[in-house]
Design a protein around this nucleic acid. Structure first.
Length: 424
RNA sequence: GGAGAGAUGGCCGAGUGGUCUAAGGCGCACGCCUGGAGAGCGUGUUACCGCCAAAAGCGGUACGCGGGUUCGAAUCCCGCUCUCUCCGCCA
């Protein structure tokens, strides 16, 4: 979240820049400042009363040591009213603090200066593209038909076992998933990322830490009996490793990678683009997470983008990279690049990765900080993450783009992982 | 699931009602010593909030978490979480 100090000192700038995200912040920010003023006034009174009581207590201690029972009793009587007052002030100040926090978490992150304005995907900015879009002599089949033809993904079976959006992979289909996961993890490790295999359920605090709560309550599946959430992305557990941690600046950047299944309710997104693997409730993804010094986080973002680009290139998929406009960006992000690959039968660009710099927004929420080696100062860290990569749409594009009468050609780089070069 | 023990700073560990942010040790930083290093000696070593233009300074908070008793709680009481040991169950 944005800190109260930042808002206090940058009211105008915050309001102005949040407009890029189509967020009208004026009202809430003024409310925040008002509550903050109230909070500080209350604390001032509270602190001085508490100091009074503390010194009286010390006095009593000394008097009793000197066996002056009578004088001690006199002072004791003086504390009665003071105690009541302090109790009331305590209640009041925790109410105010709660009110302030509730307001602060409702304010989204401030977009980076390069974020273009706009409402939706049509305003996103094309950064670059690569790869070749294949051409077919005959009509190409969409991946859901290919999946059936080669018997590698069974969507109906998923309906039976769980419900819509839970595909079942089998045979070479399952094996291809495993190949992609291993390929991505290996490449990430080569690039210096440490592999983690985290819990797939997280508690409420973790969900707050990375900002899924309270903003995206409907996004996650819940486990009410134990108050857990199924992770919508490995970002949640892997970033929360560092909740309440002060890292030494020498230890930066932290680079982690993690394969996990991801669970998303996708409430409200029924209808369009949900066929086949385009949008599912459970999918596999390999994530990269970095924690970096604030001065270097944008270099790191570019580096992560190149890394992901390299992966897409190795798979031989036609892709484009876009910089998201304010309206298309996430609540917690300061700058996001999306990767889209072209699925040649659907003739659609499918999002396969989203690489973001959250600056200190998540770090503030989860109290993730850095102790600077030279100045010894403690400052909030910057967090970044991205998919490297999300599997379903990669698979959709691979199937559609690599199809021929002979079957589906597996990209060379994947053959040693898959153990076959063709699905036929 | 049943029974018991425990949770203190970066780490180990003392502290069962009073100036305790908390002994001692380890670690770390700086200084002295040394040709250099080590040993030794000395000094220092939590974070957050408020007041102040700022620094200094002052005040407040924090001993797993949340309540309570008390003028005063690391210490006493209640609830919760987690860890360990034993028993049961189990991949």
């Amino acid at each position: 979240m944005l800190t109260i100090n930042f808002i206090r000192e940058n009211r105008e700038e915050a309001i102005e820049r949040l407009k890029i995200k189509n967020f009208n912040a004026g009202k809430i920010i003024d409310k925040v400042l008002e509550v903050d003023q109230h909070r500080r006034n209350t604390q001032k009174t509270q602190d001085s009363r508490q100091a009074e009581l503390n010194s009286l207590s010390k006095e009593i201690g000394i008097l009793l040591k000197n066996k002056d029972e009578k004088q001690a009793q006199t002072i004791r009587e003086k504390t009665v009213r003071l105690k009541e007052e302090i109790k009331e002030l305590n209640i009041k100040s925790s109410q105010i603090q709660a009110e302030l926090n509730e307001l602060l978490v409702q304010i989204p992150n401030i977009p980076h200066k390069t974020v273009p304005p706009g409402i939706g995907a049509e305003s996103n900015q094309l950064i670059r593209s690569g790869g070749n879009i294949p051409e077919f002599e005959h009509k190409a089949l969409p991946h859901w038909d290919l999946a059936k033809k080669y018997n590698i993904i069974d969507f109906e079976l998923g309906n039976k076992i769980t419900g819509a959006g839970f595909p079942v992979f089998k045979g070479k289909g399952a094996r291809l998933q495993r190949a992609l996961i291993n390929f991505f993890l290996d490449e990430n490790e080569k690039a210096g990322y440490i592999e983690y295999l985290p819990p797939l359920m997280v508690n409420e605090e973790s969900a707050h830490g990375t900002g899924q709560l309270p903003d995206k309550e409907g996004l996650m599946y819940t486990v009410p009996s134990d108050n857990f959430y199924l992770i919508p992305t490995a970002e949640v557990p892997v970033t929360n490793i560092y909740r309440d941690v002060i890292l030494n600046s020498n230890d930066l950047p932290v680079r982690n990678t993690s394969y996990t299944p991801c669970f998303r309710r996708e409430a409200g997104s029924y209808g369009k683009d949900v066929r086949g693997l385009n949008r599912v409730h459970q999918f596999d993804k390999v994530e990269i997470v970095q924690i970096q010094h604030p001065e270097k986080s944008y270099e790191t973002l570019e580096e992560m983008v190149s890394h992901v680009e390299n992966l897409v290139n190795m798979l031989g998929l036609p892709y484009r990279i876009v910089r998201l406009c304010g309206g298309d960006m996430g609540f917690t992000s300061a700058l996001t690049y999306d990767f889209e690959v072209f699925a040649a039968a659907q003739e659609k660009w499918l999002e396969v990765s989203s690489v973001s710099n959250f600056e200190s927004y998540q770090a503030n929420r989860m109290k993730l900080r850095v102790r600077e080696q030279d100045t010894k100062k403690i400052i909030p860290a910057h967090t970044l993450n991205g998919s490297a990569l999300a599997l379903p749409r990669i698979v959709a594009a691979l199937l559609e783009n690599n199809q021929s009468e002979k079957g589906i050609k597996i990209p060379d780089i994947l053959i040693k992982y898959a153990g076959f070069d063709c699905i036929s």
